[in-house]
């Protein structure tokens, strides 16, 4: 390994164009969200970014095909991808942490109750005052169907809770009936999304195994199925959001439940979109014959990302849907 030279690329115009695109996108996004703003600048940045990304990845793939990437350089790519995924984990951790804090602590305090019962469950004076003075009438509840705003202001409230939530349908029945009500789970969309996403993790693994064995057709077939499953997932999520907005009264504005629900599932959905895109590109590369049974980093990186997205979904399914 030490005899092979580590490939240090010649100077390149790509990074500074990429930075320019990011700068334009950031400026454009800010001027877009401000009232009366529009998306023009952002779209210019996005277009520039798309070109840069295409060129940059094409270049890396080309270098790889020319054999410039030594095993050591490939290991740098592996480290880069893994630590990138770690940073994504921490991004989701911020939102999961927010949900945890709001559910366990804030909700209790606004409702005038003790949050975590350790020694006795007497609420602190602060919590009691919170409820008595600021939000009288609000009762601790999760999902928050009636916001503190509604408890105080009734119909005048800005933040109105949803009519219906996304939690496990069984919770509406007493425990003794859960077994007989199992059929209510059948039309429960999140369950199907879980099935789809978990299957896609399995199929992407089959694709990987097939690729390592040099079984190109099986690889392409399973990868194709994975991309389709990712696409199905996204379609179902669109259907779910439509349902939420139109029939459940569940929106971004419907208090903290809607906030955490849409931010967590929304960012997850964005990552599924990105992951599906990555896998789709790998599928196209596979069709072009870019991979061999020993050189497949691009595909592996995309598949790690896909597994990560899957694990996040499991967290969401448990915290946001089942115990939501």
């Amino acid at each position: 390994m030490s005899e092979e030279k580590y490939y240090v690329p010649e100077q390149s115009a790509l990074p500074i164009f990429c930075a320019t695109a990011m700068g334009v996108m950031a400026f454009g996004a800010a001027s877009w969200v401000i009232e009366g703003g529009d998306a023009k600048i952002f779209l210019v940045g996005l277009a520039l970014m798309t070109i840069v990304m295409y060129k940059w990845w094409s270049l890396v793939i080309e270098e790889n095909m020319q054999g410039l990437a030594s095993p050591q350089l490939k290991h740098s790519y592996v480290l880069g991808m893994l630590w990138f995924i770690f940073s994504e984990v921490m991004f989701f951790a911020a939102f999961f942490g927010a949900l945890f804090y709001v559910r366990v602590f804030v909700n209790a305090w606004i409702g005038g109750e003790a949050s975590v019962v350790l020694f006795d469950n007497t609420p602190t004076d602060a919590a009691t005052a919170n409820n008595d003075i600021l939000w009288p009438g609000y009762e601790r509840q999760w999902p928050v169907m009636e916001t503190p705003d509604q408890a105080v202001n009734g119909e005048e409230a800005i933040f109105k809770g949803p009519d219906k939530n996304m939690s496990l349908p069984l919770w509406e029945y007493p425990a003794s009936q859960w077994f007989s009500k199992l059929y209510t789970l059948l039309p429960w969309l999140p369950l199907w999304n879980t099935v789809i996403l978990l299957s896609s993790s399995v199929t992407v693994h089959f694709a990987h195994t097939a690729l390592k064995e040099g079984n190109r057709n099986v690889f392409l077939r399973y990868l194709g199925i994975t991309v389709m499953l990712g696409f199905f997932f996204l379609c179902l999520q669109v259907a779910e959001y439509y349902e939420a907005y139109v029939h459940y009264g569940l929106t971004l504005q419907s208090g903290i439940y809607g906030t955490t629900f849409f931010m967590l599932t929304g960012f997850h959905g964005a990552h599924v979109t990105l992951g599906t895109g990555m896998l789709l590109i790998q599928l196209i590369r596979g069709l072009k014959g870019h991979f061999s049974h020993e050189d497949q980093f691009g595909f592996e990186a995309a598949s790690w990302y896909w597994h990560f997205v899957d694990v996040v979904w499991l967290g969401l399914f448990i915290v946001v849907y089942i115990f939501g």
């Binding site: 969200v33 927010a98 804090y101 709001v102 602590f105 804030v106 909700n107 305090w109 606004i110 600021l134 939000w135 928050v144 916001t147 503190p148 705003d149 409230a157 800005i158 933040f159 929106t251 971004l252 504005q253 208090g255 903290i256 439940y257 809607g258 906030t259 849409f262 931010m263």
Partner: peptide, 14 residues
Amino acid sequence: NFGTSFFNAAGGGD
């Protein structure tokens, strides 16, 4: 910009 209530107690945030 989008009406969420992470940091707003009226909606149940803090």
